[in-house]
Nucleic acid binder design. Structure first.
Lengths: 111, 111
DNA sequence: GAAATAGTCCGCGAAACGCGTATGTCTATT
DNA sequence: AATAGACATACGCGTTTCGCGGACTATTTC
């Protein structure tokens, strides 16, 4: 069940047919998504998100977790960049931090 | 095709079986997602995103245009927490990082 | 009212899913 | 060498769900 799909479309004054045409699918298919009778393929879902300028997470109603955990080793896979004193951390600095922290944690655990 | 699914799992040192168990699906099903041979249902996809603490958009490779900058000195004011190897950084560790990096930067700039 | 437009519902054939099972690889043990 | 266990990969089946075209209904326009 996609969230607010009808509202998004109506805000743009698009008909079911116009919207379906833009997505390259049948009108009845698109209508099925709005009514919840059908679930789009992932590809279609991404296209719908593009068309309505939103995220897939938003369309499927996934709440953004309040306290978001960022794994330092995954930084390059994430949409985040760390900075210190307004200066972005270089990848070398990130590597240094990882090594530094791991060393500290090893020493700490052997006490 | 889900992005970096294998890498995400391996970083957590989970086997295919463990991961599938957490998701409540068959191992071969989960393996199919990693290899790209199968596409999960939306419900499963949301669960996978939850498990790996990421967004569906990220999993399907929709680029988030936001490259969000996180200032380390402001971490306690932000909705983010940093972790290393799945273990949250303590406030002492954050302080250590700040000191460590500032020292490195000072040395670097005096060369 | 008639015609055009927009929205809803249905059932079919095709596609894709989740599953259990079989097989392969690697490591450790006997 | 043979065996066992853990993990990963591949396959094919039955079931489910999809996208589609078209029929039908509702709304708008003239």
């Amino acid at each position: 069940m996609l969230k607010n799909l009808t509202e998004r479309r109506k805000q743009r004054n698009w008909s079911l047919q116009e919207t379906a045409d833009q997505l390259g699918i049948a009108k009845s298919t698109y209508a099925g998504y709005e009514s919840g009778y059908r679930t789009p393929s992932l590809l279609s879902l991404a296209e719908i998100a593009d068309l309505f300028e939103t995220t897939v997470d938003s369309l499927i109603g996934r709440e953004s977790t309040k306290q978001e955990r960022i794994e330092i080793t995954d930084l390059n896979l994430s949409p985040y960049q760390l900075s210190l004193d307004q200066q972005l951390l270089s990848s070398d600095e990130i590597i240094d931090i990882i090594a530094f922290l791991r060393t500290k944690r090893t020493l700490k655990s052997s006490e």
